[in-house]
Every structure is written in C-alpha cells, then in structure tokens.
Amino acid sequence: MKTRKVLFLLEFLATIVFLFLFVFGMEYLYKNEITRIDLLYSSIYNSDNNIELAIVGNSHAGAMGCTPFVQTDKIGNYSVGGQDLFHASLVISEVLARKKKLKYLVLFVDYDLMGYSLVTTNQRYTDREYYKYSDTMQDMSLGNRIMAQLNFFRNNRDLSRLKNRFTNSEIPSVKTENLNFIPIVEGRDDNSLCEMRAKEMTSVKFNKKLLPENEKILSEILEKVAKNNVKLIVVVPPKRECFYRYANKLNTQIAKKSLYKVVYSCENVSFIDLYEDMSFADDDFIDPDHANSKGVDKIVINISKYMQ
C-alpha cells in the first residue's frame, strides 16, 4: 500500500513537472515572437505625434493595395486584417489618446462587419493579442485571461513559426516593409475565389445575433471620436461584381440597414458607401474584395472630397 502511494505521488509529481516544463519551454521558445497586433500597437506608439489623419479598419483599409502600417508624416494607417468593431474601438481609443493633433479619422466598415466578431469566428487568439495593450478583451473569462498572458497562445500556438525560426525563414505576416499584398487564398481560380470570399464574409462569419452589440460599439466609437473633436469619415469599401453575386443577399441587407441606422443617427459623421459603386471595375481589385493601387486611388479621391 505504502509503495503504491509513493509510486502514485512520484508519478503525479512527474506529470506536473512535465506539464510545467512543457509550458515554460514553449514560453521560452515563443518569448521573442512578434504578432501582428504587437506591430500595430508599436506603430501607434512609435509613429509621429504630428499625425493628422488616422486610418482604422480591417484588411480592406489596411491593405489598400499594399501592406498595413505604412506611414507618412501626417498619415497613420492603424489597420489590421480581420479586425472587428470591438477591437477597432480599442485601437481608436489608443490613437485618440496618443495623437493629439489628429483632425480626421477614417474608419473602414464593411456591412458584414456588423455581424462579425473575432471571438465567434474561432479567432480568440487575436482577441488575446490585444489584451497586453488594452487590458480588456471580448472574452474576459478566467481561462482566456490566463491564455492571454502566454506568448504561445498569443501566437495562435502556431508551430510553423518555430519551424521557420529554426530554418531561418521569415514569416510573411510580420514583415513590415516592401511587401506586396498577399491574396487570401492562392492557387484558386477567380470565380471560386469570389464565391469563397463572399460566402466567408456574408455567411460563414456573419452572425445576425451580433448586430445589436456591434451597433452599440459603433455608436460608442462615433461618440468617442466626436468628443475628441476629430472629424470621422466612415467608409464602406468597394467589392467586385462577382462578390455581390455570391454574397448572401439577406445578411447583406440586414447588415446594411444596421450600419445605416447607427451612422445616420449621428450628425457629425461623413459617410461614404462604395459597396456597389459603379465607378469601380474588376481591374481596380487585386482579389474579390481588396482594392489594388488603382482602386485605392479612387477610394482616396472619394475620401478627400470630405476633407477640408
């Protein structure tokens, strides 16, 4: 009996030690890994305080045909792919707090963003990435807060990063300069890519139960920006014709109504809806829903009309 007891205690202790060694080993290996959100916040912290125009949104704003975090002396692009309204709100708070000379804030909001959240689309790891900078997350459960402290979990437990490090290859997602836009899925024909993206954005990731919550977040953003005497320009980015064809019409309509309701309830907001803008043709895009440099020029012209 005594021997069994000792053996059990030894086995139990060994298991706990193994678990701790494993966890700390992973933390050690991932301690220097940089995520996209680390880069985003470092660009907010390090960019010039003379910034007068800030761009916030997801890949449709960040990409604008090229890589995010491209800065000029007076323009700061603080967009990151896949960002939802909750996290955009966190970024805006940080930008407003740090950029005292800010005059304009351009917020890119797709219709489908009104029914989208990182947490409900299996991207909690991204939610965790923000926690370090914002002290808040969408999922504030104890388990998620613990995971948000661990580098391994902040990096989506992506073992390929480790492999890349050991083979000395760089990770495309964290490059910051001279990067051309990477299509979401490579090797797909045009039509199936359109279908896939449209389904992804308007069906798979869209959840109409999130509409009230996102309306509230967007209202808070509008209020927050107005309080800081910054002019807000909300832009619905354009899409290719094939995107509309495969998009879920019902969800798109519900989301559009929801977005319009919030934006038109606020007087000091300029609103540019380019979703079905006929001036955009297929050659203005690099893929079904991301503008190339020609498309970006057109978007910029539209935005500049609303700036003094």
Partner: peptide, 20 residues
C-alpha cells in the same frame, strides 16, 4: 503509459480548444 500521458498532455496544450 508514461509516453502516452506525455503525448496527451502535449497534444492538449498544442491542439486543444479551451473555449468551454
């Protein structure tokens, strides 16, 4: 058994979904 337990713990940590 020891190898199996170690494998399960490592797999849970790397692949497990902890979203309750």
């Amino acid at each position: 058994i020891y190898v199996w337990v170690a494998f399960l713990i490592a797999s849970i940590y790397i692949l497990g979904k902890f979203e309750e």
